[in-house]
Write a protein that binds this DNA or RNA. Sequence first.
DNA 1: CCTCGACTGAAACGAGTGTTTCAGTGCAGG
DNA 2: CCTGCACTGAAACACTCGTTTCAGTCGAGG
Lengths: 179, 179
Amino acid sequence: MTGEGQGAGSPRREELLEAAYAYVLRHGLADLSLRPLAREVGSSPRVLLYLFGSKDGLVRALLGRARTAELALLADLPEGDAPGLLRALWEWLAAPPHRDLLRLWVEGYGRALVEPGGPWAGFAEATVRDWLVVLGRVLPEAAATEALAVLRGALLDLLATGDADRTGAAVAAHAARLG
Amino acid sequence: MTGEGQGAGSPRREELLEAAYAYVLRHGLADLSLRPLAREVGSSPRVLLYLFGSKDGLVRALLGRARTAELALLADLPEGDAPGLLRALWEWLAAPPHRDLLRLWVEGYGRALVEPGGPWAGFAEATVRDWLVVLGRVLPEAAATEALAVLRGALLDLLATGDADRTGAAVAAHAARLG
DNA sequence: CCTCGACTGAAACGAGTGTTTCAGTGCAGG
DNA sequence: CCTGCACTGAAACACTCGTTTCAGTCGAGG
């Protein structure tokens, strides 16, 4: 009863959520508006509100959708030692098809920090925790925090500059030092 | 003539910019609106538009103001070796009075990535470059990129979790390894 | 057949948006 | 005194926003 609308698990809802997710990957969440979104996914503001309860409900659902994409990555990771894990994670982060998702991720992270209330609440903490759990399986806490910082920081650098060589080298250097 | 309004360097403009900057530090840039801002800084939308040309002009000016705060830090840094520099930078980043500025920074960074056009344009690249220049003075490029990543990543972690001990330890470990 | 519930279209509501128009202040230099 | 200039207040303009109201359509179950 947190206000997520009527059709809790309806097929039409899933369908529209997927279409809206694709839309948001391209356009960002910041100035998301119901009318243009509805037009592009072949629906109407009326229906989106009916299925998701409110715009905030929609945003929460979209953020949840983004998080499942992230959790899916973390779930089927190759078993191995710490350097291998780090390299695998970076390979995924640096892959061009994931740019949209990662940009969206940074946007949500930033908004969640600035506006602790609202639909973003908890998003930043949640991803930090998710990643620390994974890294914590092969590294002690301090090293896991540092490795996460390297990955996140290099990602920010990569998204801003596009310099895959320089950022990739930095992550590789850190990974090598863990061997 | 990039559309930054009439009173290019007028005293009233500087005054209002400073007040607006303080407002934005508290409220974020995302849903900045002229009328509430004007009310709080003792002015009117009419005047803000007159002095800054447009809302985008205002936002550009505010982002510029934030960047000067950052450049001021980078300018008067203690001379020394790489570990000392890293520790000094982290000390500044982790200081509670700077939280607001850093949250604003993350917000601007995220928006700049998602919306390459608009007033944010170039903000993300600019800060990466500023910091890399400073770190590049005491470290080779790969190590500078890695050190920047550690600082940025640890900052994101700190802003989300508030765990100064864990994030501080991670930065300290990296700094020690540079000695 | 009839009803029920899921779903949808059209239109309106009230509030808020950036921006413009017009009409002024008040103070400087000539 | 007068002209120009920096600046400002009030009000309007032309939207867009999330949301609501009302009136349906449609297929499945009794």
